[in-house]
Design a protein around this nucleic acid. Structure first.
Lengths: 243, 243
DNA sequence: AAGTGGTCTAGACCACGGC
DNA sequence: CCGTGGTCTAGACCACTTG
């Protein structure tokens, strides 16, 4: 079977193998075909197969044993997030077994605070676009997501922004920017009344807060984000291979 | 320059490049030599150089720009953890700028609770080794780490265990087991009185809790771990490349 | 146009584990 | 012993950015 060149060969092999794992063709605890067999069957080089298997192993989907073979990990399905798409909130919700959706709460413009202008490299008083969104898991509000972005980068009227998109798409479509990397701080905080308006349950309980700074390829900070969610409802669990 | 075969060539290249970044030979925001130049200078193939650069980029140390070059990321130094060694608590403390040390609080044996025996695949009432350790950052107690391991796996007298070792080494030395992968749940909890005995600051404040399950290569659970720490003192921050 | 990183190949040799 | 994954090489071609 020769895969087409629509996306990269490696990505297609990745998709094929992941589908076989998910569908049970490669079942938990059992051995999958060797690298040579896979490269023969899929018509790609062993190096390409290896790059895909390395990624799957890093995310815990498979366990590799030198001299023996490659086995499907029977515990990886319990992880709600993976290193490739960490901090992708819709994936996090889906990984917990719910149907994710995003709703725009508000979009507004205001001057930057002193701290914000410092981090984002702005002049005091420069304007920011403030995006407040709510992520739902099967109709239940679970994550409150706030993002602030310098208004000077906006390429279209603020009202045009589709709040249901992934933050990466929002940057590409309305700001013509690509996020190169992110720096995320994981914190434990008390649910404050402002956020409690949107999230169900008792107030002042401890919740997780993800503080993210987005950077462009040229090392300049693009925007800030703060996401809060109840980790008793939505588990943030990660599988990771050790060596 | 031909590197020696003591450790893998890739690991040595990794070390060389990381050292050049840390020492400022490759300085923040500036471009580093191209893949071809590096492979020539170090006497290794371009593929090997690429595998190392890919790892450095995934951890945010460098930014790669197709058609342009590879640049040192000027923000990566602010990350306290990296994906390769995530949940390595001594690295986390070092990443926050402190000198890490580990002290054994207690080591004891008791029967497993119902929940523990379920997760670890034991019979009700099987014995567990309970390891309680305290991680210090410059003499200040910052992380309380509890681990429970089935007593049946122990290969030496309990008293022989050196509590100052990395959990991976403890498994290898005293249990003759290798950890293949871990599943970690990140939670936000209230500091309970039991843990407050060891950690300074006010009680009942929100703190981070890392619940880890350790697995062997054969997919069997080895042990459980619970680490709690004050994330206002010790930041859990991660750099991650987005594509 | 030249040079960069991105992708992929074919093949070699090694270390390890099960048979 | 044989087959497995682990490592490394040399070289090809492509896509992209910059001068």
């Amino acid at each position: 079977m020769r895969v087409l060149q629509a996306r990269s060969i490696a990505d297609q092999v990745d998709e094929i193998l992941l589908e076989r794992i998910r569908s049970g063709i490669y079942s938990p605890g059992n051995r999958i075909p060797s690298e040579s067999e896979l490269s023969d069957e899929l018509g790609v080089s062993r190096a390409t197969v290896r790059s895909v298997l390395a990624k799957l192993a890093a995310n815990g989907f498979i366990i590799r044993k030198q001299g023996d073979g490659t086995y499907v990990n029977e515990h990886a399905h319990r992880a709600s997030a993976h290193f490739g798409n960490l901090w992708d909130l819709t994936e996090l919700i889906a990984g917990n077994g719910y149907n994710p959706s995003i709703r725009l709460i508000s979009i507004a413009q205001r001057p930057a605070t002193e701290k914000e202008s410092l981090v984002l490299g702005l002049e005091a008083g420069d304007e920011l676009i403030c995006l407040r969104r709510l992520f739902h898991a099967d109709q239940r509000a679970v994550i409150l997501a706030d993002n602030v972005i310098p208004a000077s980068m906006l390429c279209e009227p603020m009202k045009n922004i589709d709040g249901g998109l992934h933050i990466r798409e929002i940057f590409e479509l309305y700001f013509h920017k690509k996020i190169a990397f992110v720096l995320t701080n994981i914190r434990s905080v008390v649910l404050d009344p402002g956020a409690h308006r949107y999230l169900a349950g008792e107030s002042a309980r401890p919740i997780l807060q993800l503080q993210t700074t987005f950077y462009e390829k040229n090392n300049l900070p693009l925007a800030l984000g703060v996401n809060v969610f109840d980790d008793s409802f939505l588990h943030l669990s990660l599988a990771q291979a050790w060596n």
